[in-house]
Structures are given as structure tokens and as C-alpha cells.
């Protein structure tokens, strides 16, 4: 019963912390747009939190740069468990178009584990909302039903990728580069 209570609470109030790893600010503005009344992520209990100590989900934007890497790892370590990371924007997903620049290590997953990828340059606010919802769906059955409803009504193909789906996407690119 307690487990159910914890799961319910976690699914109903995922607090997010915005992490800029080296973004041009395009994706950051779209995150703000996703939180504002038009897209209104807050209706799902999502609250923007200043400190990672209080957050459950990191919304990470930008490529992972050499300068920021250690800081991002430290901030990630300082968040309470369980924690989730959503990589927002093509930079956050793969480091592109800046990878392989001399100071760019790749996407956000070059430093910390990522649970959901939202591509786009910049990522659209509705895609960010959908990505967070997909993440919530792993915690809250009601969010799962909502995700299914959204998928029936809209074309969500390619909006968001799980780590497994992303691995399938990446292989041909890596092969071509190799």
C-alpha cells in the first residue's frame, strides 16, 4: 500500500529542474513555453524547481561540453533518488550540430544517464510536454492512458525516443561516421 502511495505521489508531482549544459538558449525558451499557460505542464503537477535537491526530473538542454561535464555530474549526484533525465533538443540528444567539436563530448548522455530524448532544434514545447508525459506514464497509470489517447489523436511519430528506441536510431549514423 505504501508503495502505491509513493508511486501515486511521485506521478502526481514530478518537480523538474532545468539544466543547461551548453545550450544556445533556444531549447531553454521552449521549456519555459511548455511550462507557461498555453501548454501548461503544471496541470500534470509538474513544477519548476530551482534546486536539484528538490527535483525528480532534470530537463537537460544543450550539448555536453568539456567545461560543464563535471558540474553536470555533480548536480546529478546531488539530486535525491529516484531521478530521471529528459534530454531536450537535438544538442541534448546527440550533441549535434556541435559534435564533434573540440569542446563537445556529445549529448547529455555523454555524462549522465538519460531516460527520455526529445529531439528538435529547438524541441517543440508540445514535444517536451509529451516527453515528460511519457516519462510520467512509467510511474502513473492515468498518465499512461493519457499518452495512449494523445497517440490515437495526434501523429507523435519521432517526437520522443526512449533510450532503447534511440539506440536503434543511432546505430546507422554511427556506422556511417565510422
Amino acid at each position: 500500500m505504501l508503495d502505491g502511495l509513493v508511486k501515486w505521489a511521485r506521478g502526481k508531482s514530478p518537480w523538474v529542474c532545468h539544466l543547461n549544459c551548453g545550450s544556445c538558449n533556444g531549447c531553454d525558451i521552449e521549456i519555459v513555453a511548455a511550462l507557461m499557460p498555453r501548454f501548461d505542464l503544471e496541470r500534470f503537477g509538474v513544477l519548476l524547481e530551482g534546486s536539484p535537491r528538490h527535483a525528480d526530473v532534470f530537463l537537460a538542454t544543450g550539448p555536453m561540453t568539456r567545461q560543464i561535464r563535471d558540474r553536470v555530474v555533480r548536480v546529478y549526484e546531488q539530486a535525491a533518488d529516484p531521478k530521471f533525465v529528459v534530454a531536450v533538443g537535438t544538442c541534448g540528444v546527440s550533441g549535434s550540430p556541435f559534435y564533434p567539436g573540440y569542446n563537445v563530448l556529445g549529448g547529455v548522455d555523454a555524462a549522465i544517464p538519460v531516460d527520455m530524448y526529445v529531439p528538435g532544434c529547438p524541441a517543440r514545447p508540445d514535444a517536451i510536454s509529451y516527453g515528460v508525459l511519457r516519462l510520467l506514464a512509467t510511474l502513473d497509470p492515468k498518465a499512461e492512458a493519457l499518452v495512449k489517447e494523445i497517440e490515437e489523436r495526434y501523429d507523435t511519430e519521432g517526437l520522443v525516443y526512449t533510450p532503447e528506441e534511440m539506440a536503434q536510431q543511432r546505430d546507422p549514423v554511427e556506422g556511417a561516421r565510422g
Binding site: 558540474r71 555530474v73 548536480v75
Partner: peptide
């Protein structure tokens, strides 16, 4: 305390939070 998962003390978890600065 009872509801939270067991704490994993990894890396800088117990360090003062200063926006990632060490």
C-alpha cells in the same frame, strides 16, 4: 525516511550544492 528509497551516497552527493561548482 520510511517511504524514501535507501540513500546512495555517490560522488558529490553530500557536498554543498553550489550550481555544480566544487
Amino acid at each position: 525516511r520510511a517511504l524514501a528509497p535507501a540513500s546512495r551516497v555517490i560522488g558529490g552527493k553530500l557536498k554543498t550544492y553550489a550550481c555544480g561548482e566544487n
